[in-house]
Design a binder for these strands. Structure first.
Lengths: 195, 195
DNA sequence: AAGCCAACCGAATGATCGGTCGGTTTTTTT
DNA sequence: AAAAAAACCGACCGATCATTCGGTTGGCTT
């Protein structure tokens, strides 16, 4: 299993940095020390390799949010919970840069149009993430710390905002750190404003 | 100039749909009817061709905002102006899908790290767009329809939100149309909330 | 009509691509 | 220890890639 994991780890890095078409199996071979025959022994083709990488991205990403949720102290308001999720998403954007880069590239979404497996992975990722945002909003609606009409749609708008900042940060257009305070106040206004 | 423009138009479509590495000069040749020699006669290599496409993207995009600004009725509040810009950005995300797809892909930002020309085009696009958002916010601060601390940073957060929605819409994750109302109320809260 | 130049052509080139295959080594099972 | 299975190897293949180059065309100037 050693070589296989090395292939997956290096493939994650190469796919995220150079894209699907920009990643050569030969380069994967030299970087991991595995022969090309070995790579195609473990994965039937390049697309299957990427689908496994995407599956790992999904699992590690959702695992991070699970861990974070479990170690959260109970008793905070719904608004505080949403702000905490937003903050954690920004944090992950830095620590899991490769995984986010893959999700920000276009090729997974093109592959999703022909590969149901790819489509399912992406759908699973986004529904799970939106559920996490929505859960905080819902809690806030119940404890009064959040006031708005449609929790799901607000979660979608909120997610687009945070994910957009993470993307523009890794693309070197924004400096996410310098935007942290503005983002937090924007979230508070967006969630706790008048009905 | 006929062949050259045909090459540029088709290159815009192919680069946006298939990416830089996914676009073969041979395909460009068959789709335009121009021989490969003709393509390299007009553009010294594939990268130079893309830089010209990016320049055209920049100019057409900023031109659209210029036209839109000129035909805007004077007298509206700053808040209304920002909402109008947001709405127009969403609209352009549909009508100029290819241009936005190019800006949402990763490869221009990678090319920017080695090509100063590419870097300048991208910087010019984002500063111009952020200026447009900020101008509305500034006007709103003066006429009292907008209340907040840092106009530039708020423009950046706002832009990340709208651009994120456009991106997730073209990637078939969101349905931007269904989010329109939620986005507008989100913008109002974000801009007009307490100080 | 002679000269010129930019537009245009497409066969040729060498590099690189994803993927295959027959064989060897290592690990697991019996 | 024998046999079966899984991991691994790297030379090889046909296809495709960006780019080159020698040559043709057609309009413009002189």
């Amino acid at each position: 299993m050693s070589k296989k994991n090395a292939i997956l780890a290096t493939a994650t890095r190469l796919f995220s940095r150079n894209g699907f078409q920009g990643t050569a199996v030969a380069e994967l071979s030299t970087l991991t020390g595995a022969a090309t025959g070995t790579i195609f022994h473990h994965f039937k083709n390049k697309e299957a390799l990427f689908l496994q990488v995407l599956k790992d991205v999904k699992e590690s990403l959702l695992d991070q949010f699970d861990r974070h949720r479990q170690q959260r102290l109970p008793g905070g308001s719904g608004l505080a919970q949403v702000l905490d999720v937003v903050s954690f998403y920004l944090h992950l954007g830095g620590t899991m840069e490769d995984q986010f880069l893959i999700l920000h590239r276009h090729f997974p979404y093109q592959m999703a149009e022909t590969s149901p497996v790819c489509r399912d992975h992406l759908a699973s990722i986004y529904t799970s993430l939106l559920d996490i945002f929505e859960a905080g909003i819902q809690k806030g609606l119940e404890d009064g710390s959040v006031r708005l009409d449609d929790p799901r749609k607000t979660a979608m708008v909120l997610f687009a905002m945070v994910d957009g900042i993470v993307r523009l940060n890794t693309y070197r257009v924004y400096d996410a750190g310098a935007l942290y305070d503005s983002l937090m106040t924007a979230c508070k206004r967006l969630l706790a404003g008048g009905p």
